[in-house]
Design a protein around this nucleic acid. Sequence first.
DNA 1: CGCCTCTTGATTGTCGACAATCGACATGGG
DNA 2: CCCATGTCGATTGTCGACAATCAAGAGGCG
Lengths: 260, 260
Amino acid sequence: MGRNALISIHPAIRRRPGDREATPTGLLNPKERVTPRVENLTLWQRVHGRLREEILANRLRPGQELTEQALSAQLGVSRAPVREALGRLAQEGLVTIRPRRGAVVAEVTPEDFLEAYQTREALEALAIRLAMPRLGAADLAELDRLIAEQAQLAEAHDVDAFFESNGHFHELIVRLSGNRTLLDIYQQLTARVRRYRTKSLALRGSLARSVEEHRSLVRAIERGDVDEAVRLLVEHIRVPQHRLDEGGETELVLKEAVPA
Amino acid sequence: MGRNALISIHPAIRRRPGDREATPTGLLNPKERVTPRVENLTLWQRVHGRLREEILANRLRPGQELTEQALSAQLGVSRAPVREALGRLAQEGLVTIRPRRGAVVAEVTPEDFLEAYQTREALEALAIRLAMPRLGAADLAELDRLIAEQAQLAEAHDVDAFFESNGHFHELIVRLSGNRTLLDIYQQLTARVRRYRTKSLALRGSLARSVEEHRSLVRAIERGDVDEAVRLLVEHIRVPQHRLDEGGETELVLKEAVPA
DNA sequence: CGCCTCTTGATTGTCGACAATCGACATGGG
DNA sequence: CCCATGTCGATTGTCGACAATCAAGAGGCG
């Protein structure tokens, strides 16, 4: 694990502050879309975004060392914005900072994973309860679209794309709860563990079953049956927990790196 | 709101790195307590701890401006550790950073408070479920001790001390769950809102009822009745939510500042 | 050989100075 | 008077250099 391995980060991070960029995803009105808005991120925000992306895509692997010096040289910026970004990533749980000894990309133990899933289960159950009275036809249509997407991915056995769509599905429910605090916490929690998955859940039969479970869930939501929806969801999220209990240390695996 | 108002922070923050300090609260074994361990915090960690304490004690009030320059001058350190500390506090939700315009101590709206309580309810319900199979006699004794403490504080109508003990009680349950991720999230969530309380919950009768509710909860825990314990807890945490719904904007009040 | 002490090099932590940003205010024109 | 443009001052953002820390390795001793 050479330190130079982390110097694969594309050095186009250093744009001029006045550079024109595309409008970010957000709630801009249609009029503003015609004239792209200038995106004015500070350097450290750019570094943060880039590093976060590299870590979440597993291009920077757990255990890999990140030093301010090396990143600074690679990215062509001073150490200060690198430092700022690393501090933020540390608080997000994506890197571990060893004071005066550099940072490493955070690893996730099976215990961490289990804790996160237990917590996630409680948060998503709440999300369902809050979301259901607020759902419109468009929301249900979007959930169904994601399910259809997952069915195709399961058929094609495109495992990592499947889990990505799966993540979007679950996050959408939390988003629909309308509780921003809940969404923030949920996003941070899932970001910590989403680089990993349980091995047995990638089997073709398991993917298909997961799609069916999503369908049943959305049908219960449609019927307005809150308790049933919560029961189905809880059962669904418990599956990886059971797999981990049964499968032991070798059950938790790192996802493939997403090509840059 | 003069900027000099924030210059009340005790300037003893700048200790030499080698200074001997008391052992922090933590899981040190008894042998290590005899010889106090050198506490080697960086400057930014000290600044962070101090600012956090001032904010949580409401000595730095919501909306109050914090500038790197002023804090740096007041504390006798350069801007870098101040900046680092502010970044961390921002991520904890305790300050709001306006890029290039300085930071302010974060305010909490009734909506924020409600969102936090909804989320907290889900987290504590999970905590009870995880904690109950693990509880020993000492744990129950500690819960009972806190209840007795609260009964005294309610009798004396010492409102803020009551809510502090109340907070300890709830956090202990989460700690006893054994899920560290859950505890981390819970602590961060409650830190954001604990500077505030609902007005009507400070009434003497309301404090006494709260004590009774804690008692009922611990009795259900003792009996091993999980569903009843969760039901009682949920009901208990919903009270401030209802108060907020009924009382509107004036129901949420800032706690008194704790003297330094 | 094992243990202790000292040294060193790598890295972060902090400092102070310069660069960059932007809200508030002033000025000028219609 | 209102609106557009320009200026300025306050603050942060970033830079590069020096200070501080500590793990690893070297050397010495029993």
